[in-house]
Nucleic acid binder design. Structure first.
Lengths: 334, 334
DNA sequence: CCCAAAAACCGAAACGTTTCGGATAATTGT
DNA sequence: ACAATTATCCGAAACGTTTCGGTTTTTGGG
């Protein structure tokens, strides 16, 4: 059915090895090159990547494992990643593990059996043990967003401490001292880092850390909404609130809106992630914006680099978040 | 390096064809079956899908082309789709075409070269011409969300007319007569259908269709926000507003919030898609919710069916949206 | 114009499966 | 117990590439 390299070689009147060499950038006599090119045009030949893959043992495919696709943060990262990878001929196989470690482990195994050339992973399992079966095959792994100290590989992270410090810094500048923090679960590494940033910023400013001013959530909208109730009742004197991810931002906003607590008059507010949301809210939210596209791009670049030249030491890259100014922070001083 | 079928056969003391037959559900003498299974355990054998793919000419891989991954509607669909496909051993390659027809065409070509077994596509190009190069290979295509009348294949759609009729119905029941519509571009099929649903519902109720009560947007948040300004100024007598997708919902809300127009006291509002947003808004929004997971699941099922047994007529499945009640609609009557 | 060196070419063997057709072993009926 | 039948088994050929050695052609210096 399909025209093969052998057909092409016969049609062009050259050996099959010559044709192969043509496609792999070898040196050719101009006459032969011309003959082959004409044959390709006339036969509409296309090399069979599967056959090539069998021979050279790579599939030009990379696997991506994420906690949940249905999450703008992940989706944005994958968008830029896929774009870059495809530009270099690599296909992106996504696996959504629904934030479940056992499904993450299954995904690694699935991708290994699919013989992907590499895996990019936003890990759920903080030990990284799930990646062992893959790294054993000598293939590269790039970890994104959540640091995996026990795994030797490239990692593209966000400087979460600094991100939070920027937000707290803005609040401090505006005279806030009693700053509430709506944080994440204690077992999520990035949530811990952000909490650390909060404590660090306060300490630097010579302010005491008041434990009752921080609340942990499960990082879901409804969960955050629930927690806010008791939280705000407990410390009514807080003048500002920082939510540590998209879900807590939405959940907090939900509660504040319901109760008619006005932003920023009664409470200054800084959110995290999700530009749409921040722009549509009233007033426009001041938010910490993570460099999602940049994460995806860098991860793809790192993967491509590993795939072409093996050597080179592993890199851990920390990207900076930035503060997007809205109208949800009130100046207490002046 | 890796252990091959030949190694396994030799170790087990049987022929290589016997081993192959074992893996493909052939009949085996119990003794041989036992020997092979032991060999598999002891050698940790795993069949090489690439080699198998070369021989049988399929990759156990399906390609998905969507307008934009960074869009909750698409992301949710893909999540359930990928889940189902993976359960049956199929990998999902995603291609985001950024709502650009030329990139969509490129994606089809990319996937064809990658030799995916089938393509699931939420089309940008309304003619479906981009799919020709793939259907020519006799491989199945499943179209989702936007009908492609000119293409012969399975299609999983949403009954957009009925979805909008439900929303308008609710508003009519509540005594609204001057209902504004914030719609999409004229060249988007689903937007046209929704507009049709609007007209149909009014007509059925014996109400006149007032053209000035409908506004077209480019389906972006900022674009919708802009349009709202002139729109609301033009017909200040509208008592209710229906936004026709997530972006118009967010954009409209943005404007209304900015201007301090109170929902539902001054204006009743029904949005579209995106539960998070609707729940976090104040008051909780009444919205039209599309069956995203169901679309993904059905599309995957259809694809799997096609891939296993070729026959069967093409099906066009229309799924129903449902109205999620919030507090953004006021009763004018009673 | 000739010869050696270099460049380009070639067929065949591999990559790890499935499948084909013939060979062998098990089963059945008499 | 034996022939006929049926159920398994087997090696070899195929799938479409790349790569290995060896052969042929081209090039360039004398």
């Amino acid at each position: 059915m399909a025209v093969t390299m052998k057909d092409l070689a016969k049609y062009a009147g050259v050996g099959v090895a010559t044709v192969s060499s043509y496609f792999n950038g070898g040196r050719l006599r101009p006459a032969n090159r011309e003959k082959i090119e004409r044959a390709i045009r006339e036969l509409h030949f296309e090399v069979n990547e599967v056959a090539r893959g069998l021979r050279v043992d790579h599939t030009k495919t990379v696997g991506v494992i994420i906690p949940e696709l249905d999450n703008q943060f992940c989706a944005q990262i994958i968008t830029s990643m896929e774009d870059e990878l495809r530009q270099y001929g690599y296909a992106t196989i996504v696996c959504d593990c629904r934030t479940r470690p056992e499904r993450e482990r299954e995904a690694v195994d699935f991708l290994r059996r699919k013989r992907v050339d590499g895996i990019i992973n936003m890990p759920v399992d903080g030990t990284g043990g799930h990646l062992k079966v893959f790294t054993d095959t000598e293939r590269p792994v790039v970890v994104i967003d959540r640091e995996l100290p026990e795994i030797e590989c490239d990692q593209i992270l966000v400087d979460n401490q600094s991100a939070v410090r920027k937000a707290i810094g803005l609040l401090l500048e505006n005279g806030h001292k009693d700053i509430g923090l709506l944080g994440g679960p204690e077992n999520v590494a990035t949530a811990r880092e952000r909490l650390l940033g909060y404590r660090g910023a306060l300490e630097e400013a010579g302010l005491p850390f008041r434990p009752e001013l921080t609340e942990h959530t499960d990082y879901t909208i409804s969960g955050s909404r629930e927690k806010m109730e008791a939280f705000y009742a407990r410390v009514p004197d807080m003048t500002a609130l920082l939510a540590l991810n998209y879900e807590t931002t939405a959940g907090a906003l939900m509660y504040l809106n319901e109760k008619g607590i006005r932003i920023p008059e009664q409470l200054s507010f800084i959110g995290f992630d999700n530009r749409d949301f921040a722009q549509a809210a009233r007033p426009r939210l001041t938010i910490v914006e993570q460099p999602t596209s940049e994460i995806g791009l860098q991860a793809a670049r790192r993967m491509l680099a590993r795939l072409s030249r093996k050597e080179e030491a592993f890199r851990i890259i920390k990207l900076q978040a930035r503060l997007l100014m809205g109208g949800s922070v009130r100046a207490l001083n002046e």
